[in-house]
């Protein structure tokens, strides 16, 4: 077996172990919380309509929420990275041959897997709770696949960059605030066309809006497009913006990562532990 295949397999195995750990025991309750809250919110607005369209707001927001959860992969990646840099997981990987590669392959598997489980938790009950969502068209599934693939790459590679640059897990916690702000302006729970022009422009810089749009184009009937910007699903633009973020992430992430890994050492981990214990104690 060639070496790179071995590393890939070891990394995937690592990712699956941690994915399983993330969905067993007490962890499970925490994992289910946000998808459940989201589902409840969708259920409450199932009888209102989205803008001037015939689609129910619940049905309209279900695919949007799928896009939002893909974006949360960025937050997950940042949290894992900053926590595991502090606790020495990364240093252990560095002390192991091909350990850093194995670690990151594992991380991509764990985070992608977690996101996919979230999407299933949302989608399967969601289809029964709200009206207007269409599944089954070949074109819809194809759109789902490419939007999802680009989205996972873009958000997680950006997550790697941010996670490598942040000084501590505390800083990672604060990152949730701007992301929640982004949820507010990205037309996830209400059509973006209801917002001011300049807000729309800001939202369109980031992947979240485009992930929501892409998911809606995959799951909603064609006439729902009337409440979108320019009354169009804008697949070309979606691919361009998500692709640009993915490309940026893929170029910058290895550089930042290598720099961060190079700086790890036992005394750095010990110093962070010391600092944390002082804060706690």
């Amino acid at each position: 077996m060639p070496g790179s295949t071995r590393t890939l397999r070891t990394g995937v195995a690592r990712g699956l172990v941690e994915l399983r750990q993330g969905f067993t025991g007490v962890e499970l309750a925490g994992q289910l919380l946000w998808p459940m809250v989201t589902l409840a919110a969708l259920f409450l607005v199932r009888n209102r309509s989205a803008g001037d369209s015939d689609v129910s707001l619940g049905g309209w927001a279900l695919p949007s929420a799928l896009g939002m959860f893909v974006t949360f992969g960025m937050l997950l990646m940042v949290q894992h990275l900053s926590a595991e840099r502090e606790d020495g997981t990364l240093l252990r990987a560095k002390a192991t041959p091909h350990g850093i590669q194995g670690y990151f392959i594992g991380k991509l598997v764990t985070v992608s897997g977690t996101i996919l489980v979230y999407l299933l938790i949302l989608l399967l009950p969601g289809l029964f709770l709200v009206d207007g969502v269409v599944v089954g068209s070949i074109g819809g599934w194809a759109t789902l696949l490419w939007v999802l693939a680009l989205g996972l790459i873009a958000t997680q590679s950006i997550g790697v960059v941010i996670g490598s640059l942040l000084p501590s897990p505390r800083a990672a916690g604060y990152l949730a605030l701007p992301v929640l702000g982004l949820v507010g302006i990205s037309g996830i729970f209400y059509p973006i066309t209801a917002l001011a022009d300049w807000v729309q422009w800001i939202a369109q810089v980031f992947p979240m809006y485009w992930l929501g749009l892409g998911m809606r184009s995959a799951f909603l009937p064609n006439d729902a497009v009337s409440v979108e910007i320019g009354a169009s699903w804008r697949h070309l633009e979606t691919g361009a913006v998500l692709g640009a973020w993915a490309l940026l992430g893929l170029i910058v992430a290895p550089v930042v990562l290598r720099r961060m890994a190079r700086r790890e050492s036992g005394s750095r981990v010990a110093a962070r532990r010391e600092k944390l214990l002082q804060r706690v104690g």
């Binding site: 962890e27 020495g88 997981t89 002390a95």
Partner: peptide, 13 residues
């Protein structure tokens, strides 16, 4: 081989 002082890494493994 490097023997690192673990703290709480791989806690759930």
């Amino acid at each position: 081989g490097v023997v690192l002082q673990s703290w709480r890494d791989h806690a759930r493994w």
